Lab assay of single mutants.
Amino acid sequence: MEQATVKWFNAEKGFGFIERENGDDVFVHFSAIQGDGFKSLDEGQAVTFDVEEGQRGPQAANVQKA
């Protein structure tokens, strides 16, 4: 698992990007966020996640709020 920071997340559209420590951004979809209830992330929030290869490149999976 990697630890990184949420760059931005649009709760209405259900997706955003996580900024990795190496500077690369990773796409995150609300369905990858672990937990119950409304799944959203806040800008600047610390998260841990795995990286999977998606249809359009790397994307976050198993996202957990740190």
Rank of each mutant, 00 (worst) to 15 (best):
N10V: 03
I33P: 01
A61P: 01
V6A: 01
I18Y: 00
E12P: 03
N10H: 07
Q34K: 12
F38D: 07
D25M: 15
F30A: 07
E21S: 12
F15N: 01
Q3R: 14
G35C: 12
D25I: 12
L41G: 02
E12T: 13
A60D: 03
M1G: 13
F38Y: 12
G23D: 08
A11R: 13
E12A: 13
D36S: 13
G44T: 03
E2F: 15
Q45L: 07
E53W: 15
P58F: 10
G54R: 08
K13G: 04
G54I: 03
R56Q: 10
K65N: 10
D50C: 14
V63C: 06
D25T: 12
F17W: 07
R20C: 08
D50A: 12
A61C: 12
G16D: 04
Q3G: 08
D50R: 14
G54S: 10
G23F: 06
G54T: 13
G37D: 07
R20N: 06
N10E: 04
Q64G: 08
E43L: 12
M1V: 12
E52G: 07
D50L: 13
Q34T: 10
F49I: 05
D36T: 13
E12C: 15
Q45K: 02
E53Y: 15
A66T: 13
P58I: 09
K65P: 12
V28Q: 01
K13P: 02
F38W: 14
G54W: 05
V6F: 00
F27A: 00
E2H: 14
E2T: 11
M1P: 13
A61V: 14
I18F: 04
D25Q: 13
D36F: 11
V63M: 00
E52M: 13
G14V: 04
F9L: 01
I18M: 04
W8H: 03
V51G: 02
A46K: 13
F38V: 09
P58A: 08
F27G: 00
F27C: 07
A66Y: 13
M1L: 12
G35L: 08
F49Q: 00
G54E: 04
I18N: 01
S40D: 07
E53M: 15
V28T: 03
Q45D: 13
V63L: 04
F30S: 06
A66I: 15
A61T: 12
A66R: 09
A32H: 06
E43H: 14
R20L: 08
R56Y: 14
F15T: 02
G54C: 08
D36I: 12
Q55R: 15
G44P: 00
V63E: 02
Q3C: 15
A61G: 08
F9T: 02
A46L: 15
W8I: 01
A60N: 00
N10I: 05
D24C: 11
K7A: 04
F38G: 05
I18A: 00
I18E: 00
H29M: 05
E12Q: 14
A4C: 06
A11T: 12
E52I: 15
G57N: 03
D50Y: 15
K13W: 11
N62K: 08
A61E: 06
E19S: 15
D42T: 15
R20V: 09
G14H: 02
F30G: 04
M1R: 15
H29Q: 03
N10Y: 05
E19H: 13
E52P: 00
A32K: 08
Q59E: 08
E52V: 15
G54Q: 05
G14K: 01
S40F: 14
F15S: 01
K13M: 12
G37S: 07
I33F: 04
V51E: 04
D36Q: 12
A11Q: 11
Q55I: 14
Q34C: 12
N62V: 04
N22C: 13
H29L: 05
D24H: 12
E52F: 13
F38R: 08
Q55M: 14
K39F: 07
N10M: 04
G35Q: 09
F30C: 08
L41H: 00
L41P: 03
Q64T: 11
V63S: 02
G57P: 03
R56C: 14
D25Y: 12
S31V: 05
A46T: 13
Q34S: 10
Q64H: 13
A46N: 10
G57L: 03
V51D: 02
G14N: 01
M1S: 14
Q55E: 13
E53F: 14
N22T: 10
W8L: 03
G14A: 05
G16K: 00
D25W: 12
E19G: 11
E21H: 11
E2Q: 14
E52D: 06
E19K: 15
I33Y: 03
E19A: 14
M1I: 11
A46D: 08
G44A: 04
F49A: 04
Q3L: 14
L41I: 06
Q45P: 01
V6C: 07
I33A: 01
G23R: 08
V26Y: 04
R56G: 10
F30P: 02
K39N: 07
K7Y: 04
R20A: 05
I33N: 00
Q55H: 13
N62D: 04
D50V: 15
F17S: 00
S31A: 06
G57A: 04
Q34G: 08
K7E: 04
V51L: 11
A66V: 15
A46F: 13
A61S: 10
G16I: 04
D36P: 11
E53S: 10
F17M: 06
T5W: 15
H29C: 08
V63A: 03
E52Y: 12
D24L: 12
Q34V: 14
S40E: 07
G35E: 09
N22A: 09
D24N: 12
F27D: 01
F9D: 04
T48G: 04
N62W: 08
G35P: 02
R56E: 06
G16H: 02
V47P: 01
I33R: 00
K13Y: 10
N62M: 06
Q34R: 10
G35D: 09
Q55A: 14
D50P: 03
E52A: 10
V28L: 08
G14L: 02
L41K: 01
R56M: 09
E19N: 11
T48K: 09
N22M: 09
K7G: 04
A4S: 09
A46Y: 13
E2G: 11
S31E: 04
W8F: 07
L41V: 04
N22P: 09
Q45S: 08
F49W: 00
Q55N: 12
F15W: 15
E43G: 13
N22H: 12
K39I: 06
A46V: 14
A46H: 13
D25S: 11
T5Y: 14
G35F: 08
E2R: 10
F17D: 02
E52K: 10
G54V: 05
V28P: 04
D36C: 14
V26T: 04
L41Q: 05
G54P: 03
Q3A: 11
G44W: 05
P58H: 07
T48V: 11
E52T: 12
V28S: 00
F15R: 00
G23W: 03
G37A: 07
G44E: 03
G54L: 06
F17A: 00
D25G: 06
F49H: 04
